[in-house]
Every structure is written in C-alpha cells, then in structure tokens.
C-alpha cells in the first residue's frame, strides 16, 4: 500500500502583503512513499524539504496539486492522528520535565492516560533519557532535546513518521542509537519519511530517496540506482607515468586521468581494464596497487546538484 502520494504539489510562499517577491518552495512535486519503507528526501538548503513535510501534515497550505496521506486527503485530522513529526526546530515548554512533556503531547494525541504513563516511560528509556526524565527540559542539552523530540513523535505509535534532520546535534553514539530505533520501527512496519543532509546516514538507512532541488524533483530511486555509474579504477603506480605513455593511452581511446602517481581509469569492462594493464606493463610502468572506486551518495548528490546549477 502507498503511505503517501503527491500529485504535482506546488507551494508558493507570499511573504508579507507588501513584498512582491514570491518564493516557489515546491514545484509540481509528485512522489510516492510505500508503506513500511524508509524514504529519504534529500536536497540542499532551501530545496523545500521542510515545506513538503509541512504540507503533508497540513501546517502549510499547498498552492496547487493534491496528496493522499495514509489513504486520507490533505487536511484531515486523521492523518495527524496516525503520524508522528519531529520538526527541524522544536521547542518544548521549559517548565515541564521530559516525562511531563511526553504526557502532555500524548494527551494532545488522544492516547489514554493509563497507557500513556507506561508508554512515556518506555520511550524515554528507548531514546536514552530515563536518567533525565524528571529534569526540566529548560536544562536539556541540544542532543537531549533531539532525543525528546523523537520520543514525542512516537508517543501515539504512528504508522507514518516524519523526521526532519533527526540526528541534528546528536553525538555519534546517539546517532547510531537513533538509527537503530528507526530500523526497529521499520521492522514493526512503521513508514519513515526522513529529511536529511547527512548523506552517509541516508545511505545507511533509506530504501529509496528523492533528490529535491529548488522545489523540483531531480531524481528518484534506490541508493544503488543513484550511486550506479561506469566503474572507475584507481591504479597506483610506482612512479608517475611518462607523458608519452599517457599520450599513447589517449590515442588508444582509454579514458584515463593521471594525478601524480595515480591513474584513474574509466573502463567499460574487465577486458578493457586488462588491456590497459597490459599496455602499461609493456611500456615498463610498474603498478603498485589497483582498486575499484565507489561512488558515495554524497558524490552523486553533489554532481547532480552542481550539474543542475550549471545547466
């Protein structure tokens, strides 16, 4: 089943009555999130990621287009009844303790109080805040607030969880803990919608991603699809390749780039790679090591966005 589907969703912000400048934050975004998957929405600052989530939760009214969330039309209170949201910036009433904060938002979510008490305790335990459950959130650190934010988003056991930069300000161990929590949730069937800049994290978590830039969808696919490209081999030479060898390689249409003692070879297949090695060896070039270069999501992300900006 589809957890979330948008149809040419657009949002133009009209800041102030007197300012003419409108901001097109979402430009006909159509995308689909399947139930049970971890979906990543990537994009540079100002791409419209937060706006997208806010539209789904009817915090922001779309200018045009439509969407169906959990089988319900946009604006339905039932969507929020079954969703959790960790906003990118979030503040809690500073005079409440972590536990009281969860009780408050649990009540506002309609969770029955007796059930809520045990659940709040469990959630604090799960996000590693048990120790600070009774402390006022005014005195929480940034990472502690982020953990509380996650617990708050889970208080109604949502079917669909929206997370906007969930690990922002969290230490590396905490990040790992949060990742584990998200993977556990996925196992239980929760759909997770993740906004993030941290591509290494997205790579570790997401089943599918969409890359958004200036409000438009640039690319959709699995991590594997997004990072796939022609293999590039990195060949470490004993000494820099002589210029005439490089010329000869170019003449024979090998796609190589030399940098000091490194050769980057873009080849079609293993056969072509071996032909390249044979040629190098026959010209007396000594090879130290050789390896396949992998593209990270970050690299393909950067090249995509840069390609877009250049175009």
């Amino acid at each position: 089943m589809t957890a979330l589907q948008t149809f040419e969703l657009s949002k133009t912000y009209r800041p102030g009555a007197f300012k003419r400048k409108n901001i097109l934050a979402l430009d006909k975004v159509s995308l689909q999130v399947e139930e049970g998957e971890i979906f990543g929405l990537l994009g540079p600052n100002g791409a419209g990621k937060t706006t997208f989530v806010k539209v789904a939760l009817s915090m922001v009214h779309p200018t045009s287009g439509s969407a169906i969330v959990l089988g319900l039309p946009l604006g339905s209170v039932q969507i929020r009844q079954q969703s959790g949201y960790l906003p990118e910036s979030h503040r809690y009433p500073g005079f409440l303790s972590g536990f009281e904060t969860l009780m408050l938002f649990g009540r506002l979510s309609g969770v029955p109080v007796p059930l809520l008490k045990t659940r709040a305790g469990e959630l604090l335990e799960r996000v590693g805040l048990s120790q600070w459950a009774g402390m006022r959130t005014k005195r929480y650190s940034k990472g502690m607030l982020q953990r509380l934010g996650l617990a708050q988003a889970l208080i109604n056991e949502p079917r669909l969880l929206f997370l906007d930069e969930p690990t922002d300000g969290v230490d590396p161990i905490g990040r790992k803990e949060i990742r584990d929590i998200l993977l556990q949730l996925k196992q239980r069937g929760t759909t997770i919608f993740l906004n993030s800049h941290l591509l290494s994290e997205v790579e570790l978590l997401c089943d599918r991603v969409v890359i958004l830039n200036k409000g438009r969808v640039l690319k959709t696919g699995t991590i594997a699809e997004l990072t796939a490209r022609e293999p590039v081999y990195e060949i470490q030479l004993a000494s820099p390749a002589p210029a005439e060898v490089l010329q000869e390689l170019a003449a024979r249409t090998f796609d190589v780039t030399a940098r000091d003692t490194l050769l980057f070879a873009r080849v079609r297949d293993v056969e072509q790679l071996n032909a390249l090695v044979d040629l190098l060896r026959s010209r007396g070039v000594a090879i130290g090591s050789m390896g396949l270069q992998k593209t990270s999501l970050e690299e393909s992300f950067i090249s995509l966005i840069q390609g877009e900006t250049a175009a």
Binding site: K54, M59, V77, R80, G84, P87, H90, P93
Partner: peptide, 15 residues
C-alpha cells in the same frame, strides 16, 4: 506561536 512550538502543537491531531 513561537517557532518550534507551533510545529509541535500543529502536528497533533487537533483542528
């Protein structure tokens, strides 16, 4: 209606 507070309240199932 402060930034950060509204988002949490508005994300709860109240009209």
């Amino acid at each position: 209606l402060e930034k950060g507070t509204t988002e949490i309240f508005l994300s709860k199932p109240l009209s």
